[in-house]
Amino acid sequence: MFAGFMVNTWLAASMVAVVAGVVGFFAVLRGSAFVAHAIPQGAFAGAAGAALIGAGTILGLGVFALAGALGIGWLGRRGRHDVATALALVVMLGLGALFLSMSVEYAPEIYSLLFGEVFGVSGGEIGPMAVLGVLCLAAVAVLYRPLLFTSVLPEVAEARGVRAHRMEMCFLVVVAAATSMTVPVVGAFLMFSLMIAPAGTARSFTDKPLHAMGLSVAIALATVWAAVAASYETQWPLGFFVGVGGALAYGLGRGWARHRGTRAVRTRPPTGAVVTAG
């Protein structure tokens, strides 16, 4: 399990988990679960398009993820956010269907782009992944305070001069960057599970944003490591263990929160309690 060819797998899986845990914290806080699902899934159409014209997969993914993110931001300003997300997603997937129908040999790769092929990571893929991952983390670190502010108290943030829409755009671009980094390795669906489930679980345990983010990363890492080990032993797809494991963790978190009787954790954003107290 820890043989030479598995080193890349462990590295890639860990990097994905860290980025997904951090970005996912904001996705959950902002109620952007749909965006976290739509951008990775839609971006895979870009990979199909890139294969059609002979460009690199990561380039196609990046272009589509970015276009999707900007499209969601633009449409979301003029209409309902979930409608904008759904429409951006189906347009990207419609294009994906077109690209796939035009290329002949691409069909087997769809499965791996959707569900991931983490055991086939090459050393050359690790470099770009690490760069994009560090960029995502740096962006989150720089934007941390205003992003948190607009996520929790949009009206107050607006009154204090933070541009909510600009922050939304920044957040979408970060999700897009995280997507282009992770989808070639772990697949669109796995990326989504890793963004939502650990962050959702972490919120059942703590109210403090930084603690929740750290916990989210820890849960994501634990989920991925356990999943890689289990997948290695059973040969079953990694996505199964991550998806079901994430849901189990979330269920446990909710059970714990209910057991503690901490209603505030479930129904209020983290700093909400502080604000109402003050």
Binding site: A33, F115, F189, S193, W236, P237, G239, G243
Partner: peptide, 20 residues
């Protein structure tokens, strides 16, 4: 939305297994 996402994640995981 979060609950929807969790159910979706679990469903997709199972789909991966079934398709496999």
């Amino acid at each position: 939305d979060l609950a929807t996402g969790i159910v979706l994640g679990a469903g997709l995981g199972l789909a991966a297994l079934f398709l496999y």
